[in-house]
Design a protein around this nucleic acid. Structure first.
Lengths: 206, 206
DNA sequence: GTCTATAGGCTGATAGAC
DNA sequence: GTCTATCAGCCTATAGAC
């Protein structure tokens, strides 16, 4: 079986190299600059070869999208060490902003591009399961609000899931506005985000 | 002078027709679907003619961008009739969301596309003046927070301009997330936005 | 599996006739 | 001013040789 295994490994390797090269191109030229030709050139293969590993450009985009979301989860996860829920949510916000600004093109691809790309997150078989990065990221935030509720710190009748959505939407607003209109909210993000998070949580908690 | 005037008017008319056709194409096919050929075909002229009225595709995009912002201002302006500042800000939020969802492609073009397109808003000579739609939209929101401050209703040491930026960012977050990931914040916007706005303002006011 | 070659389409922008 | 024709380039995807 050694030969078959080796061939399978080589195939997986090339697939990984294709994705890695694609990631670099998206980083450098944006998603619009990602073309099959460029990818092939970057890994020294012919364009046709790519189609043996991916159905086409869209499939590569979807893989990158999921990978980016996985990276976001990885960037947010360390905050789980903070026990106090409000402090943890504030740390999540910081980490989220940081990720979005540092990995701008990745963030754009996942959250600001064509809806059909991000659609894969919900349509995949794992969607909703523990293995799904989208679910993991969401739970990371939702957990904080559930804990606050359990401690009786949420305003009565507040729905933790609705607050989670509101919180995430606000974070997304700061990041995405900064990426598209750098310099529009004149307030620097180091002040804007903490102010927003503080106001929001102050308004949500008793 | 009649002949010269007529020619000038004809020229301005064609320019307007080009923009109108472009707007329709962006509406139907998105910004990526806007091409010089399609525009020319829509108004029954040859592609070359477009270049007599615009330097190129980018200039058309910039004009559309400013026009879209102007429309946004028009959509928000009626709320100025509401005297009580908090109620007015809530109404602005509603109108903003409504505009973003109803004019999705326009909103995308102005606030979610290439930074170089929206850049024109700040670089134009009118930028910052009363005639500038960006400034007008911003003032519409900022006025509410200044009035709240004047009435002693803001938390001490709060900066109205920072709150304005935070408020706008949140609105943008709800709209843009909905446009890119329809169905991600599972909470329907009719609940999400009021919850967000209420929490935010509760946290900002004394 | 990988290559070369190419089909078949799109794009923005321009040159020169009228 | 407007047209036709075209340049020069890009793209995805595929067919057939090796």
């Amino acid at each position: 079986m050694g030969i078959i295994e080796r061939k399978a490994r080589q195939k997986a390797d090339l697939r990984a190299r294709i994705l890695e090269a694609s990631r670099a191109i998206v980083l450098a030229d944006g998603f619009a600059g990602l073309t099959m030709r460029k990818i092939a050139q970057a890994i020294d293969y012919s364009p046709g070869t790519l189609y043996l590993h991916f159905a086409g450009r869209d499939e590569i985009a979807r893989e990158l999208c999921i990978g980016g979301l996985r990276d976001l989860v990885a960037a947010l996860t360390p905050t789980a060490a903070i026990l106090e829920p409000r402090a943890r949510l504030e740390a999540v916000a910081q980490a989220y902003l940081r990720f979005g600004l540092e990995r701008a093109e990745t963030y754009r691809l996942v959250f600001m591009e064509d809806p059909t790309i991000v659609k894969v997150i919900y349509d995949r078989p794992e969607a909703g399961s523990d293995d799904d990065p989208g679910t993991q990221a969401y739970r990371l935030l939702a957990a904080g609000f559930f804990e606050l509720q359990a401690a009786g710190r949420l305003k009565p009748a507040a729905d933790p899931l609705v607050l989670t959505d509101a919180f995430w939407s606000s974070l997304h607003g700061v990041v995405s506005l900064k990426l598209t209109c750098p310099g529009f909210p004149a307030t620097p993000v180091e002040i804007l985000l903490p102010t927003l998070v503080k106001s929001l949580l102050d308004g949500m908690l008793v």
